[in-house]
């Protein structure tokens, strides 16, 4: 067991190191931070730009491998370098990650739960109108890219605001700057982006859970549970759903990367200053260190999610727990 954990952690560490290094090398060679400095008005002399770039370890005249060595050495000491503005990357990264977390936490969990319930219900009512409705709904959401879905929701919210004459929904930023609006205001800002995340998450999990549930619908153990004296509905919930939830828990962790991606779009569209928005802006600015830091964090998160999936699986499924 211990040996297994060590091997597995080592494997993960190697993957993260490779992924982060690759991203850094790619970003450092493809992005043009020089352009960002040269665009200033008045245009600074080349020597000044060079000095500034060198100070940030971003000078494209320094050999790529030397820049990489400096960056990697820093990362090993916990120093992620500085942004183009000269701020240290690490604190900004955590601040942004927290914003993303505030946005995502409710949406992902709520969406997954709703999806599981809808999927299980649809499977139990297979071929009935309720099933068809849920299936069509999840299909429609799954076929709509997040950036279209978000705009559609904004359009809908605008219409509701107009009809009621009250600004029920807000969709710019996490709060209205300068306004003393309190918790309610923050909530108003949270509704639409959360709804976006919930819808997508629910559609994904609904499809998945329906499929899993169909497998246990005619399972022998559900029939046994009915033979004991449970009604079909009780048997499906207490035995069928309980068993069909095992893969879902794993799936929840594995889809984490996908959630991160969706979050990026959602943040950008709703003007939240989270990690995703930061990443997109940093790429546009050519901020190599910020991009590399986000990549590193994302890789770590994806791997941790994988480990969490395995642990969840082991907790929920005694067959795995026993190790046979």
């Amino acid at each position: 067991m211990a040996g297994f954990l060590v091997r597995r952690s080592l494997h993960g560490a190697v993957l993260v190191a490779l992924a982060a290094s690759l991203t850094y090398l790619l970003a450092a060679s493809a992005l043009r931070p020089r352009a960002h400095f040269e665009q200033r008005n008045p245009r600074p002399p080349a020597a000044v730009v060079d000095a500034e770039l060198t100070a940030l370890n971003l000078n494209d005249r320094t050999p790529l491998l030397r820049r990489y060595a400096v960056w990697a050495g820093g990362v090993l000491r916990g120093d992620f370098g500085r942004t183009l503005a000269g701020e240290p990357v690490a604190p900004e990264l955590w601040r942004r990650a927290l914003v993303s977390l505030r946005l995502l936490a409710v949406g992902t969990v709520l969406g997954a739960v709703l999806g599981v319930l809808a999927g299980a219900y649809a499977a139990a009512r297979r071929h009935r109108p309720a099933d068809r409705l849920i299936t069509v709904g999840s299909f429609a959401v799954l076929s709509t890219p997040v950036f279209v879905l978000a705009v559609l929701l904004q359009l809908g919210a605008e219409r509701i605001n107009q009809i009621t004459g009250v600004r029920i929904f807000e969709w710019a930023g996490e709060y209205t700057p300068g306004a003393a609006e309190g918790a309610l205001g923050r909530l108003r800002h949270l509704v639409l982006p959360t709804l976006t995340v919930v819808l997508v998450q629910a559609a994904v999990f609904g499809r998945y859970q329906r499929h899993l549930m169909l497998d246990v619908l005619d399972a022998d153990f559900v029939r046994t549970a009915m033979a004991r004296g449970l009604t079909r509905r009780q048997a499906l919930v207490r035995h069928g759903l309980r068993t069909a939830l095992v893969p879902t828990a794993t799936y929840f962790a594995y889809t984490f990367g996908f959630v991160l991606l969706g979050a990026m779009f959602t943040e950008k569209i709703f003007g939240w200053h989270g990690m995703g928005e930061w990443l997109i802006d940093s790429v546009h600015r050519g901020d190599v260190n910020a991009v590399a830091a986000v990549a590193l964090l994302a890789a770590v998160l994806v791997l941790l999610a994988g480990a969490a999936a395995d642990i969840a699986h082991a907790i929920l499924d005694p067959r795995v727990r026993a190790g046979r």
């Binding site: 022998d220 153990f221 309980r242 499924d317 005694p318």
Partner: peptide, 15 residues
């Protein structure tokens, strides 16, 4: 009451 054919699938695996 009923006894089913295949005891490996007739019992709920997670209880």
């Amino acid at each position: 009451a009923m006894v089913f054919a295949d005891p490996s699938s007739a019992l709920t695996p997670v209880r």
